[in-house]
Amino acid sequence: MNNNFKIADRTFTSRLFMGTGKFGSGEEMKNAIIASESELVTVALKRIDQETNTDEILVHLRQPHIQLLPNTSGARTASEAVLAAELAREAMETNWLKLEIHPDPRYLMPDPIETLIACEQLAKKGFIILPYIHADPVLCKRLEDVGTAAVMPLGSPIGSNSGLKTIDFLKIIIEQSQVPVIIDAGIGSPSDAAKAMEIGSDAVLVNTAIATSTNPTKAAHAFKIAVQAGRMAYEAGLPAEQLAAKASSPLTAFLTDI
């Protein structure tokens, strides 16, 4: 079974993507990433310290098997995000970008209007864009139209560990999308991650649930297995959930007697 998938021109073996915030130390983050076997890791530009070479985050991430995904967390508007994207491209030497525009600092709700504007501009500048957005099927198609490399709809509010509250919309997005769908935000447990994979998302991004667990390395390992299991189940083609037991004598059996 070939479990690989592609975003832009890069092939990924692991479908578990990771965030780098909230860890108790750089070492703890590194060990969790190793255990997750993740190949795509997002890091906030605002946390990157370019001057001193003692950056606790980047020093652990500069490895050939890891695709760095700088994010624009902190940007409130499209123009701030575009400027941040250009700085991130320079600082982290990659044109991959997790586009995050959340003017609301409390719940970090993405601004769909500014995100679409920024995505259009950044695509023209050659960025490989993965936008963090609401689970809005129309927005996903609009982003696809302007050249996004993937879409990252949220499962529930970021950091909430509430699971896939948006599941009905996620299913529509997965059904319609021509770019990879990565469920980002809200995934609180390995069973949430497995569910996300079972419904056919291409990957998930997990941060809070791993970073704030008592044992991040073990949690990362658990998520890895869950993502693999969920994907395998999706590929196996699970039978649909049955709400009622099947009647043993079919209601339409009389038709054969006519």
Binding site: K46, R47, I48, D49, G74, A75, E80, L83, A84
Partner: peptide
């Protein structure tokens, strides 16, 4: 460090 000054330039 948890800020990028460019976010306040606009």
């Amino acid at each position: 460090k948890d800020w990028h000054p460019e976010y306040t330039s606009e």
